[in-house]
Design a protein around this nucleic acid. Sequence first.
DNA 1: CTGGCGATTTAGACAAAGTCCAGGCAGCGG
DNA 2: CCGCTGCCTGGACTTTGTCTAAATCGCCAG
Lengths: 147, 147
Amino acid sequence: MSEVVAIPVLSEEQATARLREHGILPTQQRLQIAQVLLTRDQHLSAEQVLELVNATGKSVSKATVYNTLGLFAEKGILREVNVDPIRAFYDTNSSAHHHFYNVDTGELSDIDSGQMPVEQLPVAPAGTVVDEVDVIIRVRNADPVKP
Amino acid sequence: MSEVVAIPVLSEEQATARLREHGILPTQQRLQIAQVLLTRDQHLSAEQVLELVNATGKSVSKATVYNTLGLFAEKGILREVNVDPIRAFYDTNSSAHHHFYNVDTGELSDIDSGQMPVEQLPVAPAGTVVDEVDVIIRVRNADPVKP
DNA sequence: CTGGCGATTTAGACAAAGTCCAGGCAGCGG
DNA sequence: CCGCTGCCTGGACTTTGTCTAAATCGCCAG
């Protein structure tokens, strides 16, 4: 028989509220996605979201997952993180914070905001305004032994 | 008739020297790539490098360009910059510095190192060591008028 | 309740960036 | 000059993401 994995989901009411707060029309599929995503702070790629949603039973198409993640990011529910040139990650913690990226494992983790001093920003190039500041600290697994 | 564009290239001697400094065997193709890349500070995607090299007459295959850029990055001649999930950029300025990324134009520009205060780094997760710190400041074109 | 309409969703075709592979070539050590 | 090792190549392949045309949904006016 197939393995049953409990996937934690947000209640429909909570998900609906989150979407409305951000001016997003809560459709069936968007709720589906919001419910699996917004349960906790996590970093997922689009493909992972697709699998996760479909694992809950109700399936959502690939195109919709991509559209929805893009919409959520635009509306500020999610934050897109670019660390790997081959795929984007979406961070459910949309508050200002930075990331560690383990290049060996591909793991992404948040940097406690208190640990990263608010740095003084340089002036943006003429004709442009700052949109967002991303700090990525790339880390490697420490060699267990070193001669 | 076709337009003739002068592509500045490094001399073969200089390119050879740069490769040897970094412990890279200077083959025909690697020199070709080094000569067009290392003439000045620039930010290029792999596809752009491919076009650029082939525009000089001597052609190099796609696989070799990818392999070589990866090798150069590993050996510290280039720095890989991830700003856009759909393609990687290679920065010929390998010294420590950060970037502005214009999300409207896709333009990447260096941040003068004096303008970006050396921030105190947070402690890396257990079992890992810091490899590199990337700061990307995303900017948008300023709206020319705003009521 | 019913019709209509714009927004949303869908499957699947398509595109772009990058990787892999098997075969051929190059250049160096002997 | 020979052979070994590493390098290069074209082309097939993979992965991630986008596009399209058609079906469906949600919701309001009548």
